[in-house]
Amino acid sequence: MDITVLGKGCSRCESTIHRIEREATVLGVPVQITKITDEVEIIKNGVMTTPAVMIGGKIVHSGGIPSIESVQSWLKK
């Protein structure tokens, strides 16, 4: 599963990546995480608050660390 995390490498962005990796390991879903850190690229994806998460070209979350429940629901799809 390809997941993109958008954000300029602040601690919340790192926490978001760690949370996704951890839940993916727990659920046994292989994930490939790509980071977008350039602000102009972030904006062009329609995101103005980071960290944001994009799956399959669609923004599923923005403006904070996603809840564990949200992460699990994305991984189970």
Binding site: K8, R12, E39, I43, M48, T50, G63, G64
Partner: peptide, 9 residues
């Protein structure tokens, strides 16, 4: 908002 969002914002 997180300070790292100030530029996109």
């Amino acid at each position: 908002f997180c300070s790292c969002s100030s530029v996109p914002l």
